[in-house]
């Protein structure tokens, strides 16, 4: 195991547009998920946002951004984390 300090930038390796979603993501569908290869060489799975699903391409350059991922029920703990959007 190696530790990597990530700069937040990477490239889309593959992606999907999710139409059948878990209950927690119901309001977001359809949404785009991708596998991103970070510039440091490691890969992550994350949502791709601020882009139309039809504009997502393999090879697209993206950068991480801080977002709400979900929450545990109406009054539960809110989960924060990263999503990726096109590099500007």
């Amino acid at each position: 195991m190696n530790r990597f300090q990530l700069g937040g930038k990477g490239t889309v390796v593959t992606y999907t547009i999710i139409h059948d979603a878990p209950a927690q993501f119901e309001l977001q569908k359809p949404y785009v998920m991708g596998i991103i290869e970070m510039d440091e060489g490691v890969r992550l799975t994350s949502q791709l946002i601020d882009v139309k699903p039809e504009d997502v391409k393999i090879g697209m350059k993206v950068q991480a951004t801080f977002r709400k991922l979900g929450q545990e029920g109406e009054a539960g703990v809110i989960h924060y984390g990263y999503k990726f959007r096109p590099q500007v």
Binding site: I18, T45, I58, G81
Partner: peptide
């Protein structure tokens, strides 16, 4: 590392499919 971000089981296989097509 996958499900919490919204990746479904079908979605993960879909990403394999997309890459295989590519």
């Amino acid at each position: 590392w996958e499900s919490v971000f919204g990746a479904t089981f079908a979605g993960l296989y879909a990403m394999i499919a997309r890459r295989h097509m590519h």
